[in-house]
């Protein structure tokens, strides 16, 4: 039985988001999920990039790293590798994760870093006032795409599955109960767990009502361990909420632990011996 309440995870700072912003729902779900898991705040690190949603660590009373635009994943990887005891949750937006930071996403996926990545996807740049993002729709009008967006959107879920993420799910800020459960499953999953959280920007791209109408649950008979079916589901139009893909695979943390266990213990003096050039000294292994 959990002893901590969602409010225990709130910091003294109040979110700076616009009224109605989907990120409130995501944050509420995160608080509730952390309480459900009874996470020790001092052993939890929330890592973010830059953007509206990346302010999130400041609103949680855990450890946090508010990094640079696009860089939460490699920072989160360093945190987890250096201290595997910690629960590490990376958060950010679609611009942070799939434009400037897109180079890190497939590598986090293929490495199966033991980190949960929660992306608040609003299909727009909010903090810089409404420009098109990598998940903005074709022909979408925005200040930077006055003639309509000439580009097709990226499909982060398909990308995650293709690149080797071992947990891929979609949730929505307006369905906090389901999102809470998804976050819990993602954090408890061993390896890289990615959640695309639909989180409407009520100021610059208010998709709230249309998204509410468009979402469906992943069919109960969907087999999330079937990668091809998961890929198919991710590529299909529409918004299926739930777990698209789940795989059991050794994590990066486990693989490095194995390297550590296989390493022959040494120390700096032995390493210095490898360079020994004293006359008549035994020939060591080449340093």
């Amino acid at each position: 039985m959990s002893t901590r309440k969602p409010n225990d995870y709130k910091s003294e700072l109040k979110p700076i988001w616009c009224p109605g912003c989907g990120d409130f729902g995501v944050l509420a779900s995160l608080y509730r999920s952390m309480a459900d898991m009874d996470l020790d705040p001092s052993k939890t690190v929330i890592v973010s990039g830059i953007g509206c949603s990346s302010r999130l660590p400041h609103f949680a009373s855990t450890y946090g790293v508010h990094t640079l635009h696009g860089r939460p994943l490699p920072v989160a990887m360093g945190v987890k590798l250096a201290n595997p005891e910690l629960t590490v949750i990376a958060v950010g937006g679609d611009g942070d994760g799939f434009a400037i930071g897109a180079g890190h996403f497939p590598h986090a996926s293929r490495r199966n870093i033991d980190v949960t990545y929660l992306v608040m996807d609003n299909e727009i740049y909010g903090l810089t006032k409404g420009q098109a993002s990598p998940t903005s729709l074709f022909e979408q009008k925005a200040p930077s795409t006055p003639f309509g967006n000439p580009e097709d959107p990226l499909n982060p879920l398909a990308l995650a599955i293709a690149a080797g993420a071992s947990f891929v799910a979609r949730g929505a800020s307006f369905n906090t109960k389901a999102l809470t459960e998804l976050i819990t499953q993602a954090v408890e999953h061993k390896g890289f767990s990615y959640i695309d959280a639909m989180s409407p920007c009520t100021t610059f791209n208010n998709t709230q009502e249309s998204w509410k109408d468009a979402v469906t649950d992943v069919a109960p008979d969907h087999d999330p361990t079937d990668r091809v079916k998961a890929f198919d589901l991710a590529l299909r139009g529409g918004f299926s909420l739930g777990i698209l893909y789940r795989q059991e695979r050794t994590t990066q943390t486990e693989r490095y632990k194995a390297i550590l266990e296989q390493a022959k213990p040494s120390d700096v003096n032995v390493m210095l011996d490898g360079f020994n050039a004293r006359k008549g000294a035994a020939i060591g292994k080449p340093a």
Partner: peptide
């Protein structure tokens, strides 16, 4: 790492933990 940015970013994360 996948590039120098990720290298230093992960160094930041590791140092953050001590």
């Amino acid at each position: 790492c996948e590039d120098e940015i990720a290298s230093l970013a992960s160094v930041v994360g590791a140092s953050y933990t001590g």
